[in-house]
């Protein structure tokens, strides 16, 4: 490698410093949650010179308090969240990739207006949708079921948009070649488009999982005790008389773990250049 010039070295230093700063800003709250979950409430709530920055030994005690909590089944809510997020992610990946494939590779009447209408729904805030969605879900008899929060966003507009953008990169010749080889249109999607879009699908899976994991308002409205997801369950920890910060911190720390696992599992699929070698430029 050649030596950097002075200017380049300075810019590189500035660049790395900036990246480091942003990383710290991201990590500090997570670190604080993890540390706080291991400390007794009165310790981490005290400020000034008593501020505790290293993990303590109170984690299990906090966890016991959380589990002993009347009316909140936190461990159950983790399972609810995991089940909903996994089913949602899989279903949504299928629907978004099919939608994206159609918008990227087929011509049909009103294609553009339909696509932009779908995209436009991204601007609608969830608060606006809660009441109509609730009516819809209750008419379908799905209130207080997992499907109530899986179905409404299953065809995710952001997901359709991302898949459309990525699938546009699939060369038309690749699909035509498969058509001539005898593939049906569904086989084009299943055997050519999906395998070549693996890394985009992995990235989208994280976006979708995270989106579902963090949904709060609609689950709060539509779910009842026992079906609660993590955000709703954490909300229940805020009592009428008092906020149980120690329990909230344990719950928050635990809720991060599945996200980590999902990311670790998917990141090996983030490889670039799957399409390389398909067509000669």
């Amino acid at each position: 490698m050649r030596n950097l010039t002075r200017d380049e070295a300075v810019w590189r230093f500035v660049g790395y410093s900036f990246v480091l700063l942003v990383t710290l800003l991201m990590i500090v709250p997570i670190y604080w949650i993890v540390v706080a979950s291991t400390l007794p409430e009165q310790v981490f709530l005290s400020g000034g010179s008593d501020l505790q920055l290293l993990p303590g030994t109170n984690f299990l005690a906090n966890l016991d308090a959380l589990q002993a909590r009347e009316g909140v089944d936190f461990i159950g809510s983790i399972w609810n969240s995991v089940f909903i997020a996994v089913v949602y992610t899989l279903l949504s990946l299928v629907l978004c990739s099919m939608g994206g494939f159609a918008f990227a590779k087929y011509d049909f009447r009103f294609k553009e207006p339909i696509f932009y209408s779908i995209l436009a729904t991204l601007t609608l805030p969830i608060q606006l949708l809660v009441i109509p969605l609730f009516l819809l879900i209750s008419q379908m008899g799905l209130t207080n079921s997992y499907w109530a929060i899986i179905l409404p966003w299953a065809a995710n507009p952001l997901g359709i948009f991302l898949m459309r953008q990525n699938m546009k990169q699939i060369p038309d010749a690749l699909l035509e070649s498969a058509r001539i080889d005898g593939a049906t249109e569904f086989q084009l999607y299943y055997r050519i488009a999906l395998p070549t879009m693996k890394s985009s699908l992995a990235a989208l899976a994280i976006v979708l999982f995270l989106f579902q994991w963090n949904l709060f308002l609609f689950p709060l409205v539509v779910l009842e005790q026992g079906k609660y997801t993590i955000p709703v369950a954490i909300n229940e920890l805020v009592g009428a008389q008092r906020v149980y910060y120690d329990q909230i911190m344990v719950a928050a720390a635990l809720s991060i773990i599945p996200l980590f696992l999902v990311f670790l599992f998917l990141q090996r699929h983030f490889v670039s250049g799957i399409l390389a070698g398909s067509v000669k430029e």
Binding site: P171, A173, L174, E176, S177, A178, I192, P195, T196, K198, I274, L275, A276, G277, S278, V279, K280, E281
Partner: peptide
């Protein structure tokens, strides 16, 4: 046979 070969990359 296509000009750019169109091989299935995966």
């Amino acid at each position: 046979v296509f000009q750019n070969y169109a091989l299935y990359p995966h």
